[in-house]
Every structure is written in structure tokens, then in C-alpha cells.
Design a protein around this nucleic acid. Structure first.
Length: 278
DNA sequence: CCTGCTACCTGATGGC
DNA sequence: TGCCATCAGGTAGCAG
């Protein structure tokens, strides 16, 4: 599931590939991917437009156009694929991965496809990024200069929620998902069940440092190897190298040899070490 | 404003 | 072997 590091790596790599190209044509093959918009809205918004830039907002990927932008959200399983030549729908054997494509952007120099078999992900055209409530309401980006220990302290300040749930709230901190929230709390040696407002200033500083460390390290992993839009496996290769607790239920903690536990918070799995996370 | 719950969707998994 | 029920997970929308 792409979280901030994956989307950031994709943005940097895709930027070099598509910036300056024009969207010759847009095909919506599975209209569920553009809901609640209509395929026509997306097509009219993008066709003929030049892609001026690619950026990330939280877990959203934005294609900045001459007029407006396209916002893509991968949710759980969304991916991007790339074809150098215009995809051919007839003749010839299908290319190796005969994956279904939900939305295809035919550019001047190739085709960019949005793929999501589970159909949770979304692609929208927006006159301005802020027209999307999800984007407008995003909290601070943890890799931005404004993300300081003091800022973390303020965010924690009034929240009665469990720490893990706060970290995953996109309107507070933009970009942490289920995996890196667990990873950051492990790194900070903090129990995910703690009430956010109860952290000491010292613990808040530890949390800040852990979040930044975990995301930066994961981003490095996601950039080496760099995103390969022909290889669906890439989307998982970065995460695997970076994981210290996630999905390790019952196995020994890499720090204290305690037994990693899995609990449920807000209907999601949380992994932590009860022995060294207090 | 804050918090918590559910629907959305489908591949993978496990039980019988 | 095959079928069916269950589960995972990010976000929007709704309820309290």
C-alpha cells in the first residue's frame, strides 16, 4: 500500500518521464476509478493539456496541467504502469502483464496507466488541488521544514485519541499510513495505545525524530531501486527492506527480543513490542 | 471541533 | 478438489 515514501519516489521518478508532455488522449476503461466524477469530466479536463509538473501532497500524486491538475490516490493497491508506445488493443499478443488498466493517459511519448484491481483508488481532474476536500484538509507534511518537534507537541496537545490513530489521521499529519505509523512508534519506543496528549515533551521529540527517520529511510529504499512502472513488484520492494515491526506478530523484537504483538486499533492491525514500547 | 463506526471492493486465505 | 465465508486496508460520509 503506497504511503508517503512510495508516492514521493513515484513523483520524483515520474516527473522526469512525463513533465513537458501533452496528454493526447485519455481513456477511462473502468469508470469506477473516477467516481464520483464522470469519465467525460476527466477526459475534457486533461485532453490536450500539457503536464507541467508532478508533485506529492500527502499520499496524493498530482499531475499539474496547464489548466488544473489530475489527482491520483492509490489507496491500497493502486499502481501506475507505463508503455513506451501507444498501447494496442487489437492484434499482437497482449504484453506480458495483461493487467487491466482503469485509466489510460496517452501522452506524446508513451502511455501512463492507472491500475487498481480492487477499485479503491481514484483519479480526478480538479480545477485546483484544493477543490478536493481530501487534499484541502491535509495536515502538515512530515518531510517539510515546518514539521518540527514543537509542531508535533502542538498536534499531540489536545488529542484524546490513541497515538497510532492520531498518526494515521491525514488531517493532522499527511502521509503516514498503517505501516509507517507502526514503524515510527516502534522506533520511538512508544506504546501505540498511549493517549496522544499524555506524551512528555521529551517523548514528543523522540516521536518527531522517529517519524522523520522512518520516512527518510523508507524513501531511500523506495529510490533504490528507483520506481519501475513496468514492474508491479517494485511497489512492494521498498517497504520490505524498511520494516522492523510491521507484520511480525509473534516474532522476536529486533531491539529487545521481546515478542511482537498485533492488536486492533480503529479496525486496523497495529504491531508493536510490549516489552520496549512504553 | 472531536471521535468512532461503516461502506466501499476484490484477491488471498482458511475451513470443511 | 472445490466451494464459501472471512479478512485486509485508506478514506468519505455519517452519527453522536
Amino acid at each position: 500500500m503506497p504511503e508517503l515514501p512510495e508516492v514521493e519516489a513515484v513523483a520524483r521518478t515520474l516527473r522526469r518521464r512525463v513533465a513537458g508532455q501533452r496528454v493526447v488522449r485519455c481513456r477511462v476503461l473502468h469508470s469506477i476509478a473516477v467516481r464520483p466524477q464522470s469519465p467525460a469530466t476527466l477526459r475534457r479536463g486533461v485532453e490536450g493539456q500539457r503536464i507541467e509538473g508532478v508533485e506529492r501532497r500527502g499520499k496524493y500524486l498530482l499531475l499539474r496541467l496547464a489548466r488544473g491538475c489530475v489527482a491520483l490516490h492509490f489507496r491500497l493497491d493502486g499502481q501506475l504502469v507505463w508503455f513506451d508506445s501507444p498501447a494496442r488493443s487489437t492484434g499482437g499478443r497482449p504484453r506480458r502483464p495483461a493487467r487491466h488498466i482503469d485509466v489510460a493517459f496517452e501522452l506524446t511519448g508513451g502511455t501512463l496507466g492507472f491500475v487498481d484491481r480492487r477499485h479503491f483508488g481514484r483519479v480526478q481532474w480538479l480545477a485546483r488541488a484544493e477543490d478536493s476536500p481530501g487534499i484541502r484538509n491535509l495536515g502538515i507534511d512530515p518531510l517539510s521544514p515546518g514539521f518540527t518537534p514543537e509542531r508535533v507537541q502542538t498536534l499531540l496537545g489536545k488529542a484524546r485519541r490513541a497515538l497510532k490513530l492520531l498518526l494515521m489521521d491525514q488531517t493532522r499529519i499527511a502521509g503516514l499510513g498503517n505501516i509507517y505509523a507502526s514503524e515510527a512508534l516502534w522506533r520511538a519506543r512508544l506504546d501505540p495505545r498511549r493517549r496522544a496528549a499524555r506524551l512528555s515533551p521529551q517523548e514528543a521529540r523522540r516521536l518527531h525524530k522517529a517519524i522523520v527517520y522512518v520516512l527518510r529511510r523508507a524513501l531511500e529504499c523506495c529510490l533504490h531501486p528507483a520506481p519501475d512502472f513496468r514492474n508491479p513488484e517494485w511497489w512492494f520492494s521498498g517497504v520490505e527492506k524498511a520494516l522492523r515491526v510491521y507484520d511480525r506478530e509473534g516474532r522476536p523484537c529486533r531491539r529487545c527480543r521481546g515478542r511482537i504483538r498485533r492488536i486492533e486499533q480503529g479496525g486496523r492491525s497495529t504491531y508493536f513490542c510490549p516489552c520496549c514500547q512504553k
